[in-house]
Amino acid sequence: MLDSLKDVIRKSSIHVCLINTGGCNGCDIEVVALLSPRYDLEQYGIYVHNNPREADVLLITGPVTEQWKENLRRIYTKTPEPKIVVTLGSCPVSGDVFNQEGGCVYAPVSDFIPVDAEVPGCPPRPSEILESILSVAPGAIATKGRQRK
């Protein structure tokens, strides 16, 4: 009874922290576009706060640059449980065009912190982000919340 109540609450109130680990900014503004009245992320109970200390979902955009190697782990440890990590765009998965000779990136993100879901595209459309976050985030958070006990 308590578990199912917790599940409902966890599913309907998700706080997102957006971390730009060195991307080109394209994915970030698509997330800002998601906040707009047209897509209206908040009607699903998802709030983008940019505060890792109260986040349930870490949304990571960008290949990992020199400065983020340590900081990303620190942010991850400071996020309370249960938490899931979703990567946005192709940079965090593969490094994209930056992962070539001469580039100064340390992709993928999964080398540093565990990743639960990926949204491909450079950058993904807001509707694609919305679809994949909705299909992954609520369920994953609920199951993770049960596991921790």
Binding site: N20, G22, Q67, F98, Q100, G103
Partner: peptide
Amino acid sequence: LGFVHRGIERIME
């Protein structure tokens, strides 16, 4: 600054 340096000019060369 310095959090998003990817060395893009160097990649282009």
